[in-house]
Computed example of a mutant assay.
Amino acid sequence: MIDKKPNLAHFDTWRQWKQGGSREAKQTLIETYLPLVEYVSGRLAIGLPKNVSKEDLGSFGIMGLIDAVEKFDYERGLQFETYASWRIRGAIIDGLRQGDWVPRSVREKAKKIEEAYQKLEQKYLRTVTDEEISDYLQVTEDEFQHMLQEIAVTSICSIDEPIREEESETRLSLLVDERAKNPEFTVNEFYLKETLARAIEKLTEKERIVVSLFYFEELSLSEIAEVMSLSPSRISQLHSKAMLRLRGVLSRYKVQLFEK
C-alpha cells in the first residue's frame, strides 16, 4: 500500500512537532503562520472603539494561533490556514469580551433589535423595514439608525461561544469535520446551510452586497464604501442590520435543533 502524504504545506515540520514533539518545529510553525494573526486582527479592528489597541488584538490572536497549532490534526490533509483563522478570530473576540469592551447598555440594545427582527420577520414572513422595526422598538428612525451605529462593533460572533450558556458545546463543534459524520449531523448541517441561504435571500439588496463583499470577497468596510458609493458609517449600519437579521434566523434554528 502506498503511503500518501497529505497535501499540507510544511508537512515535515508538522510531523516533527506532532509525532516527535519537537518544540523547535512548533516554534517554526507559529512563526510561519504569524501573518495570519496580523491579517485576522486587522479585519476585526475595523470599526472597533479607539480604546482597543492593535497590540491587544495581536496578543489575543497569537494565543489563538498557538492553540490552533497544538490542536490541528495535520494528517487529515485539511488547510491549516482556514482552521487557524477561525481559532485566531475566536480567541480575539473572546479576549475582548473578557475585557468587557462593549458597554452592557449597547449589548442590551443589540439584543432588543435582534429580537425585533426575529419576531417581526417570523410574523410577517418577509423582510421588515426600518420603519416597522422603529415602531416596534418605539423609537424614531433616526434613533434606530443611531442604535445601529452604536452596536456595529457587537455584530462579531465568536465560534468559541457556547451554543447554550449552561453547556460547553460551541458553534465550532458544528463546523469541525470529524472523520465520520453520523446521519443526524449531516441532516443538521444541511438544514443549517439551507436556513442560512434562505435568510440571506431575505436580506435587502444592499445588505446582501455588503455581506458578500465583506465575508466572501474579503473587502474592508472602507473599501466596500467606495465600491457602493456610500459612507463607511452607512456600510457599518447595513452590516449590523444584516448580522442582526441572520442572528434572529439562527436563534430560531438553535431553538428548533437544540430544544427538542
Rank of each mutant, 00 (worst) to 15 (best):
residue 98 Q to A: 15
residue 208 R to C: 08
residue 63 M to C: 09
residue 136 Y to L: 03
residue 81 E to C: 07
residue 74 Y to D: 03
residue 106 V to N: 02
residue 78 L to T: 05
residue 150 E to D: 15
residue 156 I to E: 10
residue 133 I to D: 00
residue 243 M to Y: 02
residue 181 K to S: 12
residue 81 E to K: 14
residue 160 D to S: 13
residue 13 T to H: 06
residue 236 S to C: 06
residue 88 I to E: 00
residue 244 L to R: 02
residue 113 I to R: 01
residue 84 A to S: 06
residue 256 Q to M: 15
residue 92 I to T: 03
residue 8 L to Q: 08
residue 29 L to T: 03
residue 232 P to H: 08
residue 156 I to W: 15
residue 141 E to N: 11
residue 175 L to V: 04
residue 176 V to D: 10
residue 230 L to I: 09
residue 239 H to N: 13
residue 245 R to W: 12
residue 242 A to H: 02
residue 131 E to F: 10
residue 194 E to W: 08
residue 139 V to N: 01
residue 166 E to Y: 07
residue 4 K to A: 13
residue 27 Q to T: 09
residue 228 M to D: 06
residue 167 E to K: 12
residue 3 D to K: 14
residue 205 E to D: 13
residue 204 T to Y: 05
residue 52 V to I: 15
residue 146 H to Q: 13
residue 132 E to D: 07
residue 185 F to Q: 11
residue 91 A to M: 05
residue 136 Y to E: 14
residue 244 L to N: 03
residue 174 L to I: 08
residue 67 D to T: 11
residue 122 Q to H: 12
residue 172 L to T: 06
residue 217 E to G: 03
residue 133 I to K: 00
residue 69 V to H: 05
residue 177 D to Q: 11
residue 86 W to L: 14
residue 55 E to C: 08
residue 165 E to F: 10
residue 42 G to T: 04
residue 108 E to D: 10
residue 239 H to M: 12
residue 105 S to E: 15
residue 246 L to Q: 02
residue 13 T to P: 03
residue 242 A to V: 04
residue 260 K to T: 09
residue 211 V to A: 07
residue 193 K to G: 07
residue 17 W to C: 02
residue 43 R to Y: 14
residue 222 S to R: 14
residue 212 S to N: 12
residue 240 S to D: 05
residue 118 Q to C: 08
residue 11 F to C: 06
residue 10 H to P: 00
residue 173 S to K: 07
residue 99 G to W: 07
residue 246 L to Y: 01
residue 30 I to M: 08
residue 233 S to I: 09
residue 154 T to A: 06
residue 170 T to L: 09
residue 194 E to C: 08
residue 52 V to N: 04
residue 209 I to F: 07
residue 171 R to H: 14
residue 70 E to F: 05
residue 140 T to K: 08
residue 218 E to Q: 13
residue 128 V to E: 02
residue 251 S to H: 13
residue 214 F to C: 02
residue 75 E to P: 00
residue 232 P to S: 07
residue 38 E to W: 05
residue 189 E to S: 11
residue 62 I to R: 13
residue 167 E to L: 11
residue 32 T to G: 01
residue 26 K to P: 00
residue 11 F to K: 03
residue 159 I to Q: 06
residue 208 R to F: 09
residue 193 K to R: 15
residue 14 W to H: 04
residue 21 G to E: 08
residue 148 L to G: 12
residue 181 K to Q: 12
